[in-house]
Design a protein around this nucleic acid. Structure first.
Lengths: 147, 147
DNA sequence: AAATATAGTTGCTTTTGGCAACTATATTTA
DNA sequence: TAAATATAGTTGCCAAAAGCAACTATATTT
């Protein structure tokens, strides 16, 4: 049937795994792991969320997340405030300095992305973006979406 | 300047990281790690290559690769034949049973990809593929290519 | 109120991977 | 061509990343 499409989708995935690896290189030089940065990213994006939400969103082990949050709290990167409605859980958010740390990491990653785009002509860059947009449009509604 | 393009590229990367994770789920239930499967994939694709080539292609630590190859050899997944021209290195290739193991894993991954595509109309699937193709075309020549 | 479920923590373990020293062979250079 | 240097792969050692299961405290259901 559409076996060639399947094969192509998979080859794209292999290809894009390499691209993502490239973009992630920036983080790897920081003192934070990719997972830690992803957590910071989500906290930055949403202002406040629980550990459970992080676990579900990023598909991580809850024990692992718990430790990362503890570490972040010690380093004054996140603040926890116990929820009124459910005393088991906490609202997590980036502290001011946590935000600053994240933004710096974010800048580095931004720079990596910029470098990729600057290697392209502006037509190529626009085409790249619009193709990416189309892919997101197609996949987003079907797959339980991310981002 | 093209800050919005940069931001979009990054959001696509986050999005697609999730998709790749989805596709990799199949492997994760197997007894092999993603890296191990990637090694098998390359050996299957190229018939014979050296550990050094694997290290460069997949950007892995050579000690790590060495151990994986040793493990694979013990499990009769790969065969090593010392190179005539360079006695330090070995040609690596999947054994018959290694090939069978790989193909089974491959089928599982194929099935995952098929499921994603079958959730789309055939027009959507075609569009998805052609967008992916365009992205690869644009990035492949610029970036030191993969796949 | 007893049973069950959920949020988060902790102890323990495995997996993954990095680094550096080492062996053996190749290549370069003096 | 002998000495110096480089390379392929191995091994020992170690740390980071992550999973699992038992546990505490609170919530929800029966």
């Amino acid at each position: 049937m559409h076996d060639h499409k399947i094969a192509f989708l998979r080859s794209f995935n292999r290809f894009y795994t390499g691209i993502i690896g490239l973009l992630d290189e920036g983080y790897l030089q920081s003192e934070f792991s990719l997972t830690e940065v992803r957590i910071m990213y989500e906290l930055h994006a949403r202002k406040s969320m629980t550990a459970r939400e992080l676990v579900e969103l990023l598909k991580l082990d809850k024990g692992y997340v718990s430790r990362i949050i503890t570490k972040f709290e010690k380093k004054k990167i996140v603040e926890r405030t116990r929820s009124d409605s459910d005393l088991r859980s906490f609202g997590l958010s980036l502290s001011k300095s946590g935000k600053a740390i994240f933004l710096k990491l974010n800048d580095a990653s931004q720079e990596q992305a910029r470098q990729i785009l600057s290697s392209l002509t502006s037509q190529e860059a626009s085409k790249l973006i619009s193709n990416m947009n189309a892919i997101m449009q197609i996949l987003q509604k079907k797959i339980g979406a991310h981002g």
